[in-house]
Design a protein around this nucleic acid. Structure first.
Lengths: 224, 224
DNA sequence: AGGAATTGTTGATCCAGATCAAACGGCAGC
DNA sequence: GCTGCCGTTTGATCTGGATCAACAATTCCT
């Protein structure tokens, strides 16, 4: 992510590599004391918070290269749980070590601020999604987000495996499972994608992008 | 916020105090280059991002003591606009100066990480609100949040002025203006609060808190 | 392999909250 | 004081997506 090799070496020294984790394993649970940040090397992880009365809100899906646990620094304990969705390799970054390191390395400190800030900006996008977008726009946004993040890691942006269930996607997007299922069917009928169980192929990225930007053509105006 | 007086003095040296700003003034606009963070001293500010096709999503209301602009560090330009809601005193913190200062002051660096992390945790709460709560729960959550933040600053937690319009509240909470208006009326009928134009009195904090936690009594189960 | 539990799909119905419509109350400008 | 414009309230109606209800396809377990 644009670090000098010198910095990378230093970071490398404090990273702990954990043995592979498997579907269902927890990286940490809500209210665990906060000690480390985690980086997904391969596989995927979901984070989620308990909502009132037993339910849960999926907060995010984390793909290779992505950092988990930034929301816990403030309270010294995790505010959400992180569960592995498929066999995954995860690196652990003890935060106190990281903090010492960034204190003596301005370029790393800057990088750290950027990472935290990026997380905020992403949450902000999500607020817009949940606050203003309809079901179709939400799912299109989700698919394109996955696509872009996979591309960034050199993986196929148009042919991939969903490690999360329809239920989890719906929860994340603020929609019911049934709505997700119906939209997958519809998107497929419209030739936007090809869905086979958890195997997804995006056939028309451009069309999906035009859905994301709020389908102005088929709605009257817009509130607010 | 729990800083050593020594640190506060150093911070004080880099703070720019701006003349009072007035309703409608912008602190910054979306896509402006990022230079500074802002702290509300008195008054209030709203931040908002353009949503697709002209609308906007209100991202937050910022009261005295709160920091604005953290989402811009990553991209070097502001991802949202900040508009003053009433005559306000705002401090400006040039970020490059702040970054230098925190690099040489571990306690300040730590504080900075905590602030960024807290922002993420707050956004997370908001995702839960927009993803899982109904209209009643959203408004109750909003009112209690204001109440608590005012109390933290030594202001009345149960008698205050709303500097934002019903429209802005609705936008923030993902609800229509009419819904906000109706809920205010209902909350008042139920003796939870007293509403007079923009003047709010919370009469029953405990009851509002019980609303927030999802009113399990009057709904069947709960999805996920 | 066989049965049970989980996950996904599809159709029918329902409802919270949006949208539409109208009238009202404050307040700014003249 | 009068006028016009917002912002707010209230009522009527509409609708996107939730909920309910089967059922089908997978995966898991023994």
């Amino acid at each position: 992510m644009g670090l000098a090799t010198e910095d990378v070496e230093r970071l490398d020294e404090i990273v702990k590599r954990t043995r592979p984790l498997h579907r269902g394993d927890y990286l940490f649970r809500e209210s665990d004391p906060f000690r480390s940040l985690y980086v997904v090397k391969t596989g995927s992880v979901k984070t989620f918070a308990p909502s009132s009365e037993g339910g849960e809100q999926v907060l995010g899906f984390h793909l290779p290269g992505e950092l988990i646990g930034l929301d816990a620094i403030d309270r010294d304990r995790h505010a959400c749980s992180a569960k592995v969705l498929e066999t995954s390799a995860i690196c652990e970054l003890p935060f106190s070590r990281l903090e010492e390191l960034t204190a003596m390395t301005p370029s790393l400190q800057h990088q750290m601020y950027r990472l935290l800030s990026k997380e905020i900006a992403q949450d902000t996008d999500m607020l817009l999604l949940l606050g203003k977008k309809n079901a179709e726009e939400r799912l299109a946004t989700f698919l394109l987000s996955l696509s872009q993040r996979l591309r960034k890691r050199g993986l196929s942006p148009s042919d991939f495996h969903l490690s999360m269930s329809r239920h989890e996607i719906g929860n994340y997007l603020g929609l019911a499972v049934e709505t997700i299922s119906r939209l997958f069917t519809r998107f497929q009928e419209d030739g936007l994608m090809c869905v086979d169980r958890k195997h997804i192929q995006l056939l028309n990225l451009a069309a999906l992008e035009s859905l994301v930007g709020s389908c102005s053509q088929n709605r009257r105006q817009q509130q607010t």
